[in-house]
Design a protein around this nucleic acid. Structure first.
Lengths: 238, 238
DNA sequence: GGTGATTAGGACCACTCGGTCCTAATTTGT
DNA sequence: ACAAATTAGGACCGAGTGGTCCTAATCACC
């Protein structure tokens, strides 16, 4: 039985297989390498929460979804529904970081091209649920930002990490951009437009809404490109 | 005792004062001229729902907020919590139509200038709650679009009426706009950006987020303006 | 093979949920 | 003034809610 440090939390290595259990105090933005059962519960909860929201997903629903035997079986793995929610959020961000945000860091592609590819990826990710099921972050944000400070700060952190990825991409692309481009503002605009687009798409049950907004968003970004630098649509004002 | 038709619903006129009770079947988009008690309940519910969401607002909370005596007192005025939710949504749209959308129709102002003023109005409306409390439509959309079809179609209708106002403004402004401007797409983009901005603002608890996105959105709209036409001054040709 | 930790399982708790029922007070039209 | 309609009030319901407790079964390890 040994100890090691991963990210911020202390884990205790137990038994066979790769089942790790965190026993240190929970900190923000921790993603555990969990036992299979934990993963199973987390996956079931993620689906349910993204379908019906956090408050409307009961612990019993999660238990049913993860095919657990009973309440205490669940509470053996998670100390509360709240903690479950936090970890689901973390896992979903990690998933998004792998499948979406990663594009922003591809070193071999032109940064502005990467930004377009990232927008395409968001559209593609949304298409997987057929236009339903918005961004898990946007959903939780709308549901809990006012009511639950714990979730609010965690969602804020998610958006911040997302924005910072875009900011560093814009920094990388700065030779191609107008001098007065405000990376902070532009990164926020991109995220807001995408989150709003996903929301509208969900309400209208029509993926073309997202596609249209994504196309417009690309044009807006192109507006910030220097007249000389090639990126087809240069009708820059100012 | 008399009968008359207002909007879509049949009302029965009772007693003194202006207390009207709908007795016809409920249809979409009906706004009742209600008894004072109904208004009182609706107002309390609107506050609570915008603070904590629909599912997290209990009927008992509403009763407490509206200072009613008990459950059946509430159920005397509303046949269900769901119906209450629908009417709150309608009232909130009506309020938004009066205080926000109305600007889009001001006949004496240049249409594109009106659009900017409208965006300012959205920022101002949001400022009233100090950056908390998002658009009531966006909140309900995120919370219920997947889970509750009844709400979904009503929220869709709200966004559609909003979009159509913007579309007709853009139609009015078409002499000043590029020929290839797609009014449907642009109107959706504006709404999505604003809804996304309000959401981000709420998460970050920072009004400047909304202000920045609003400024960028104006620049995006300006991108569609013909090179010759200046937006500020009324140069509209009909 | 026994022992201590881990995993399962079920009964149960106090409380809240949306909603109903039934009766008393008040207001209404005549 | 009086009966009918409306408004108010409280007790109550069955089904959930998040969460605890206590006991079996299973497991790793000496």
């Amino acid at each position: 039985m040994g100890w090691f440090l991963e990210r911020v939390a202390v884990y205790k290595v137990t038994g066979s297989e790769n089942s790790l259990l965190r026993i240190g105090p929970p900190g923000p933005n921790i993603l555990l390498t969990m036992s299979d059962r934990r993963t199973q519960i987390l996956d079931a909860a993620a689906t349910l929460i993204s379908e019906r929201g956090f408050t409307s997903t009961s612990v019993d629903d999660v238990i049913k979804g993860a095919k657990l035997s009973g309440k205490s079986h669940f509470y053996h793995y998670f100390k509360s529904k709240e903690e479950l929610g936090y970890e689901v959020l973390n896992r979903q961000f990690e998933r998004f970081a792998e499948r979406g945000l990663a594009i922003l860091r591809e070193p071999m592609i032109d940064p502005l091209e990467r930004l377009n590819l990232f927008i395409d990826a968001v559209v593609a990710l949304q298409s997987e649920s057929g236009g339903r099921r918005g961004s898990p972050f946007g959903n939780l944000a709308a549901e809990l930002a006012d009511a639950h400070e714990g979730f609010r700060v965690r969602i804020e952190a998610v958006f911040e990490r997302w924005a910072s990825q875009i900011r560093s991409l814009l920094w990388e692309a700065r030779p191609q951009l107008h001098d007065d481009v405000d990376a902070v503002r532009l990164s926020r605009f991109i995220i807001a437009a995408l989150e709003g687009a996903v929301l509208m798409t969900r309400v209208k049950r029509d993926l073309s809404v997202l596609e249209g907004i994504a196309a417009d968003l690309k044009r807006f970004i192109a507006m910030h490109v220097r007249d000389g630098a090639a990126m087809q649509h240069n009708r820059a004002v100012e």
